[in-house]
Design a protein around this nucleic acid. Structure first.
Length: 584
RNA sequence: CGGGGAGUAGCUCAGCCCGGCAGAGUGCCUGCUUUGGGAGCAGGAUGUCGCAGGUUCGAAUCCUGUCUCCCCGACCA
């Protein structure tokens, strides 16, 4: 492509609404433009790179036995009513009516449609297993789209759905997809990590996320510095430290703590560490109270709380609600005697008391005395709460967020390190949670009607593009790996003399005929302008034609990634270019 | 939805407090000069000052309403 004919509106400055570097560079390099919040158009350069990601995904999915299909993104409400998600899904689901007042939604995901497809077409175990995938635009009406392509409302996604006769076969396909995802992201040149993930509201038994490590990532992952353990913060847990401390065995003792409500205030006043305190928080999970006790310096994971209670929404209780439930002002609650207190005060309320695993290694703790302005010292879990100091005990549940340096749950030596990541892929074992309500079934060998077990596997195609830039850029612009670059070669002529232009034109033809994709900056611009645009756009290899080089019988080149410059003799250019591009 | 901020030339933004000809830089067009890392000179085009209403002789500027966008939070396969 000749630059002079191409629509490549590069910008010197990034638009003010672009916050993260991938968004800034995608806009500045003329790849995308915003049309509305979270909705972007792809210009010629952008769509080339997007297609590269899609093509890698397609090739690897096909290699893994997937079959490409294409489903509508306008989906009749009937299908979503059948699965029950029409009611369950919130305002994130964009609903629309046609001229006959029939209801539809824009597909944020396609379990319903693919189930319908399989229901209509598969009737025998002989047709299974199946892995059907599509690469298509999704729409989710996100509350707050942000960060350009990283969290758009409309975005390109590869979603795959597999159907199996049994769980064993699903396990096999899950591993197959896991490996396929590793190959896909490797081919995209991304440093990627698979982590244990929360299955969230989609349900199912097992789930991994594929995370691109980047400081601008929206997710936090915890990983072990010794073994391979890695998990999303929503799911990560830690090993219980065996402190070796023995309880002093003194009797619980009330201490006067006037107006001291927070962990910091009380621990400061009593000159103890926050780790020595038992924090007691009251949550409202849908319409029920859940009282969570955990070690003072830790935070409750609302994701884990949701998973434990099955609630759709959880929030901290208001001060009035806590007073109404317990009669104790916020800040002075403690687990000892709390249930009796609630029973006497408020027999109507539905509530639940949970102890986080972090408490399993706590001795001689301090907690609220369940009356205003008093705390209690010398609380021992085993003696005073009748819970064993042992995380395996039923009385403890996992409700806290891990912290940096927590001991790894999988190996003896490791500590957890926290880092940020961008979720580019997610794989799930779904089981029959969609197939059952959608009445998908087939006949097995014995002629019995059965529901297939399903897996589902997503890749954020447009997000992968953004993630690549987050991971590969410098202050000049994008540094594309060759696999995703819009063009292999960015050709420039240094002057507009007849000889230089003619030589450049011949080289341009030769490179194309040799199978390279070439963007030729043939504009009558100064060298600096061309270099700056070339660095901004970030194609892996720049090739320059100019009088000085030609006088030596050479073309010049620069490798975008590391700035290496050099010459190749005009005669051997194809061999040299081939060699250089092999490593880019 | 709560809190904060912004909408003025393609882009970045000034002007608004204190009402009085619509601005700068960059980009764009023309010409000349220049040409190895965002050149110089000269000339030129470009605006529903987000939208609607109000106050006023007069509104980008003051008032009211509204829409859009951004940030933080809540939310989120």
């Amino acid at each position: 492509m000749k630059f002079s004919k191409a629509l490549i509106p590069t910008l010197r400055e990034a638009p003010g609404d672009a916050e993260v570097v991938s968004h800034q560079l995608l806009v500045r390099s003329g790849m995308i433009r915003k049309v509305a919040a979270g909705i972007y158009e792809f210009l010629p350069l952008g769509i080339r790179s997007l297609h590269k990601v899609a093509q890698i995904v397609r090739e690897e999915m096909d290699k893994a036995g997937g079959q490409e299909v294409f489903m509508p993104n306008l989906i009749p409400a009937d299908l979503w009513l059948e699965s029950g998600r029409w009611q369950k899904y919130g305002p994130e689901l964009l609903r629309i009516k046609d001229r006959h007042d029939r209801e539809y939604c824009f597909g944020p995901t396609h379990e319903e449609v693919v189930c319908d497809m399989v229901k209509q077409t598969v009737h025998s175990y002989k047709s299974l297993p199946l892995n059907l995938y599509q690469i298509q635009t999704k729409f989710r009406d996100e509350i707050r789209p942000r960060f350009g392509l990283m969290r758009g409302r409309e975005f390109m996604m590869k979603d795959a759905y597999s159907f199996h006769t049994d769980l064993e076969d699903l396990d096999h396909e899950y591993k197959n997809m896991y490996k396929t995802y590793e190959s896909i992201f490797k081919r995209c040149g991304l440093e990627c990590r698979a982590v244990d993930a929360d299955t969230g509201s989609i349900g199912g038994s097992s789930s991994h996320e594929f995370m691109v490590l980047a400081s601008t990532g929206e997710d936090v992952i915890a990983s072990c510095n010794v073994c391979s353990y890695a998990a999303n913060l929503e799911k990560a847990f830690f090993a219980i430290k065996q402190t070796g401390e023995k309880p002093i065995q003194e009797d619980p003792q009330e201490v006067h703590t006037p107006e001291l409500k927070t962990i910091e205030e009380v621990s400061g006043f009593l000159k103890i560490k926050p780790q020595q305190m038992i924090k007691t928080l009251v949550y409202v999970a849908d319409d029920n109270f859940v009282i969570v006790c955990l070690v003072g310096d830790r935070d409750v994971s609302e994701a884990k709380l949701k998973a434990l209670t099955g609630a759709a929404e959880v929030r901290l209780a208001l001060d009035e609600e806590i007073m109404g439930l317990t009669g104790v002002p916020t800040g002075f609650l403690g687990p000892v005697g709390l249930i009796d207190l609630i029973k006497s005060k408020n027999s109507e309320a539905t509530y639940r008391l949970c102890f986080d695993r972090s408490l399993a290694s706590l001795f001689d703790g301090v907690t609220g005395a369940n009356k205003a302005d008093y705390h209690t010292k010398n609380i021992n879990i085993e003696r005073d709460l009748k819970l064993k100091n042992d995380a395996q005990h039923d009385g403890f549940v996992d409700l806290s967020v891990v912290m940096a340096d927590d001991p790894c749950p999988h190996c003896a030596q490791g500590k957890l390190v926290l880092m940020r990541g961008i979720e580019v892929g997610h794989i799930f074992k779904l089981g029959d949670v969609y197939a059952k309500p959608m009445k998908v079934h087939y006949l097995d060998k014995d002629g019995r009607e059965k529901a297939p077990v399903m897996g589902c596997y997503g890749i954020g195609v447009s997000r992968t593009l953004a993630a690549s830039i987050e991971q590969n850029h410098d202050d000049k612009g994008i540094i594309w790996p060759r696999a995703l670059a819009p063009y292999d070669i960015h050709l420039m002529n240094f002057d507009m003399s007849d000889e230089t232009i003619k030589t450049a034109a011949e080289l341009y033809q030769l490179l194309i005929e040799s199978g390279f994709s070439v963007l030729w900056d043939d504009r009558d611009e100064r060298v600096g302008v061309k270099f700056n645009d070339a660095d901004l756009i970030g194609n892996p290899l720049q090739v320059m034609v100019g009088k000085k080089g030609l006088a030596r019988g050479c073309y010049e080149y620069k490798i975008r990634k590391d700035g290496t410059k050099g010459d190749f003799s005009c005669a051997s250019v194809i061999g040299e270019v081939t060699k250089l591009l092999e490593n880019l």
